[in-house]
Design a protein around this nucleic acid. Structure first.
Length: 476
RNA sequence: GGGCCCUUCGUCUAUCGGUUAGGACGCUAGGUUUUCAACCUGGAAAGAGGGGUUCAACUCCCCUAGGGCCUACCA
């Protein structure tokens, strides 16, 4: 029993804490991945908290999108999702405690006064301090609105960051930040600290846009006498041009990557190597990633999104993926392609049989659909340009003779068809190209496809003979 | 304006004072070849600039330049 309690105290607990103002974008996905990996590596827990204290900007669709994105990516969180907003009473309680202990105070400045104060502070190159931090609250105007501000410390601040190292600020850099708004609703920096403390979060991996917040938050931890978590601020992801990530180049939701045909494990693997490394290893299974992930591999410099590399990594994972699963995943991508046969069962059958060969040839599910298209394309094909040109008289005559051979053979399988084709080319005294090119044209209609023997084996005798017949002069 | 963070091939990165600065993507030459891929072999390609410290600096320190973040009663 006691050991269980101690275990809980020392257990690694991380969290992902997005604000629900949009979907799960690529940067958030990586942050979540790192927190998830770190927790799983240590046998700890990974929690999900929605930072919805800004009611005006928080939406349920966004909350759903974030959960869907994480689920799709395979980043499962422990316990129930925590709504920060629902914990507002607790945040207020802590704010009052800090007022009582002198670490916070009521500030009665109105908006104009604050603006003037801020402008003065700006000119002096320091952060805003409220005059009310030292005033007797008894002098407060009766019934006037106020906010609760934190009493910024007078000592310099040092934060030990697991990625950035020691980061220092002079005391004057910290303002008396608002803890409770005039409507007594808690603000971000208060809520984060209280929640992370209450949730026993031990390690906070987040974007380095929060680095300064770490200093502010550390002050609150110290004021409350709470143990500070380990902070790890990772650099942001930039666009391919090195500029801030915009929707134009990749600041898309996880579902957009799904719709482009990337596998969750492919995106995970790519994201893993963006800002983290483990020697020269590029390809990771989940087990390898969990075993290898640690803070030491985290990088300090920002990285850019590279869709080409994502595709390359994804290709590896498609080649490794289970055939049945790929058949299912490729279906929606196939639906977008025109002119297919109607027999769904037949389509599924052919694709299933061809999948082992197809999956080594595609970087995305969209490409996989392109690779599979020849299997389900409706006859007859319209051959144009180069394809039609390949079917000259000589080629047609040759295809005719091949047709006869195919009718006669009784071994309709990959290996037998391969040797049949080879022997046929020899008997015709021509190179394989003279046979293969026209045959490929009539069988695939120009669509990408694997080895011809395999193509014939998967298509089946009737379909193969039919496709050949379609392109030869009538009367054959 | 102030503060903080960052800077190795085009891109992702290895290097943790001594290496011909390695790998991967992309690019490129060639091979294989029945399309498209894949695959195999080879190639081009990097320490932002300037000062130090040191026998020795990509690595440590300083300055400059460039980039980023924060500077809200947003998160």
């Amino acid at each position: 029993m006691i050991s269980q309690v101690q275990h809980l105290k020392t257990m690694i607990r991380t969290r992902f804490a997005p604000s629900p103002t949009g979907f799960l974008h690529i940067g958030g996905a990586r942050t979540a991945l790192f927190n998830w990996l770190f927790a799983r590596h240590h046998g700890g827990q990974f929690l999900l908290r929605i930072e919805d204290t800004d009611r005006a900007r928080s939406t349920q669709p966004a909350i759903d999108a974030i959960q869907d994105g994480l689920s799709w990516l395979g980043l499962d969180w422990d316990g129930d999702l925590v709504s920060q907003y629902s914990r507002a009473d607790r945040h207020v309680e802590i704010a009052h405690q800090m007022v009582a202990s002198g670490h916070a105070f009521r500030c009665y400045c109105d908006a104009d006064e604050v603006d003037a104060l801020r402008a003065a502070a700006f000119d002096e190159g320091r952060a805003l301090r409220s005059p009310w931090r030292d005033r007797d609250p008894a002098n407060a105007p009766d019934g006037a609105p106020f906010v609760v501000r934190f009493r910024a410390g007078d000592a310099d601040m040092l934060v030990e960051d697991a990625v950035q190292g020691e980061v220092r600020w002079a005391a004057k850099e910290f303002d008396d930040l608002v803890l409770l708004r005039s409507d007594m609703s808690p603000t971000y920096n208060l809520a984060v600290v209280v929640d992370d403390h209450d949730m026993d979060i031990t390690h906070i991996i987040r974007g380095d846009d929060h680095l300064v917040n770490a200093g502010r938050q550390a002050q609150i931890y110290d004021a409350m006498g709470w143990k500070r978590p380990v902070f790890a601020h990772i650099p942001l992801i930039h666009g391919p041009d090195g500029k801030k990530l915009s929707k134009r180049h990749g600041a898309l939701g996880a579902e957009a990557y799904r719709d482009m045909g990337y596998l969750p494990e492919g995106l995970r693997n790519y994201l893993l190597r963006l800002g983290w490394s483990h020697g020269d290893q590029e390809i990771f299974t989940d087990a390898e990633a969990i075993a290898a992930f640690d803070m030491g591999g985290l990088n300090k410099s920002p990285s850019r999104l590279d869709l080409d590399k994502l595709s390359h990594i994804n290709a590896h994972h498609i080649a490794q993926a289970d055939d049945a699963r790929l058949c299912e995943l490729v279906t929606p991508f196939l639906e977008g392609l025109d002119g297919q046969i109607d027999d769904a069962a037949l389509k599924a059958d052919r694709i299933r049989n061809a999948m082992p060969a197809l999956k080594t040839r595609a970087a995305t599910l969209a490409e996989l659909a392109q690779q599979a298209y020849f299997l389900v394309k409706a006859r007859p094909f319209q051959l144009e340009g180069k394809l039609a040109k390949q079917l000259d008289e000589t080629a047609c005559a040759r295809l005719n003779r091949l047709f006869t051979r195919l009718v006669e053979t009784d071994a309709w399988n990959d290996a037998a068809l391969a040797s049949l084709l080879k022997q046929f080319a020899e008997s015709e005294s021509v190179g394989f190209g003279k046979v293969g090119q026209p045959l490929r044209a009539v069988l695939t209609g120009g669509a990408p496809a694997p080895d011809l023997a395999l193509v014939m084996a998967v298509l089946g005798r009737d379909e193969v003979l039919g496709r050949i017949k379609d392109q030869l002069s009538p009367g054959i």
